[in-house]
Design a protein around this nucleic acid. Structure first.
Lengths: 337, 337
DNA sequence: AAAGATGTTGCACCCGGGTGCACGATGTTG
DNA sequence: CAACATCGTGCACCCGGGTGCAACATCTTT
């Protein structure tokens, strides 16, 4: 263990400069790719830097350049496993651009306003509202926070004109899904949604209803839960099946997401002994890993995660030409329909 | 829209000082809780600050104090839904302490060494290795990165003496689980593990084997997968059930985590038509949301997430007395055993 | 009313790297 | 070899708050 290892103090650019017999600005240049510096000088500086264990202080750099290379991702629902692959792809894409992801939990102790103020004060470069319910932002936000923080919405439609969004094309998705259901011969459709306002932002219900209307099916049963939890769906479906004689029931239940579909399936099959899809067909949305399980085998729709993330990265980097973008995903037919 | 709204420039403490007729240090004091400042001065400064929309620049503060109030969380497996509740609780706990969570994706493009160097250069206050496979760190790390970044391991045992860990007590967990299985009368145990080295760090296999040995059961069938994916488990179990006549099969299969258990259950029940638990009992670990589903109903073990997170926060804040800590969770018996 | 204790304020200087410019060194051209 | 372009280097000063100390103001005490 040499003396230098025992020194707790950080090595700065000036230390390297002194040791290498140049000015600290030359050290800076040695670490700046396009800078004007004599090759020998650069090599010498880099050698000294390596020997001393010098690495530029990125915090100081951020402070000087006003760019932290950090992107905030706001999320308010950790119950939905569909979020994980998005987070994985997002963090990977950001890291490949030299940025890192700051994950902010939006909950009753910490709303959008708090989060955005904090993010803004910390000088993060942008914030992504990832599937969050940002009504609070619309209601009381706006003028209170005069921040220049660029905002983006991911995986739902933006309800604020100035904030661009990247989402899955709900019209295309529901058309594909419904045409499949139509071909299978189902004619008494039901729709299971989550909380009203959140549901609207996804646009799935609207598109589902439109499809059946266009085919001359005028009645669609709509059941709403107040959270996106499987258990809430289970409760609502148990109630529905109990109250509705089998002759009057829907023959296909489209669920707004897989978590709801899983809850519904459990009750229908497990508690009421219904055959799926013969007695009741069920479909979900998101195509989370577990729905492909042989005991569930739910028909679902996969969002184009990679493309969505790539597009939002382009937006953040300012390389995107257009405003909000909707991308088409892929129908996954399984034995539940 | 007043003139001040049109100005894109940030409002700094000096701006407020000028406007309020005090020095910038007094402005600073107005925003520092315990500082020595006359109440009237503070009020006046705060009023001016409010009017101008001033908020302290946390990046500048971080730079000056050498504390970013940011904690990195390293994760290398986004497939396991059991990670989500940990992330939720972690982010909430950090935010309640005025810190935020930086989520770093460890993958083949970005290993522990890269991540730690980056985190260190960005001056984050600490890093949590959350269930990651950090053999690479042990092998080539150490001396190459001379960083003073505090490291902690969460949800697995630390294999590096200098890094404290917070994990679920595998001995207590497996004892509880196995005593339950023993009472139920199972005597031909099997264990389904993930990749060898990762598995060792969890300690579950070791404790499972020890229990049966102590009860005089000398043979335990061990099956290994090379990832923790449900599909990998399904493949291995399909192979096992195909190759093993029913008279020679295990009567209970303990799986290292729920994802594996779900895969095993799907094949046993769905493909081989086995009755669970009569023909084969199955148990998992982590008690993720989906295993309580009526169609799965897997016996599992819930890690004490809240306590684990609270403990690691204490460690980060330097309030923890001890070194590594193991906490006891809770057995959840369902109809699969 | 003077001496002391306490409260309040201003001030240099620090954190560590980034920017634009000026000056010197080197190289090219007529 | 002079005139000019180009490259390489050093330098002030910036980013916006934090720290310790000195100076000043105010309030107590005797």
């Amino acid at each position: 263990m040499s003396d230098s290892d025992r020194v707790a103090k950080r090595v700065t650019g000036s230390d390297v400069a002194r040791e290498a017999g140049v000015s600290k600005w030359t050290v800076n240049r040695a670490f700046t790719p396009g800078a004007s510096i004599k090759p020998e000088s650069r090599e010498r500086v880099l050698a000294v830097a390596e020997r001393l264990g010098y690495r530029p202080n990125l915090l100081a750099r951020s402070f000087a350049t006003q760019k932290t290379q950090q992107i905030a991702v706001l999320i308010d629902d950790f119950k939905n496993p569909a979020k994980l692959p998005f987070l994985e792809k997002l963090s990977e894409a950001l890291q490949s651009q030299g940025m890192i992801m700051v994950l902010i939990n939006i909950n009753r102790h910490h709303d959008h306003i708090d989060a955005i103020m904090d993010i803004d004060q910390r000088q993060l470069d942008a914030a992504i509202l990832f599937g969050t319910d940002f009504r609070d932002l619309q209601l009381e936000g706006g003028e209170r926070l005069r921040s220049h923080l660029p905002l983006f919405v991911l995986a739902r439609n933006s309800t604020i004109a100035s904030i661009p969004s990247v989402s899955c094309d709900a019209t295309a998705a529901m058309t594909q899904m419904c045409e499949h259901l139509w071909e299978r011969g189902y004619r008494r459709p039901g729709f299971l949604t989550g909380p009203r306002t959140l549901s609207t932002a996804l646009g799935r219900r609207r598109n589902f209803l439109d499809f059946w209307e266009s085919r001359g099916v005028n009645h669609v049963t709509v059941i709403s839960t107040n959270t996106y939890a499987s258990s809430a769906a289970a409760d609502k479906i148990r109630e529905y099946l109990t109250d509705t004689p089998s002759s009057e029931r829907v023959d296909v239940l489209m669920c707004e997401n897989d978590a709801l579909a899983i809850g519904a399936l459990g009750v229908a099959k497990g508690e009421f002994g219904l055959r799926v899809p013969e007695d009741l067909a069920i479909a979900g949305f998101d195509d989370i890993d577990q729905v492909s399980h042989p005991l569930l085998a739910l028909t679902s729709y996969r969002q184009p995660i990679e493309e969505m993330v790539d597009e939002i990265i382009r937006m953040i980097l300012g390389q995107s030409t257009s405003g909000s973008v909707s991308l088409v995903g892929q129908l996954k037919v399984r034995s539940s329909t």
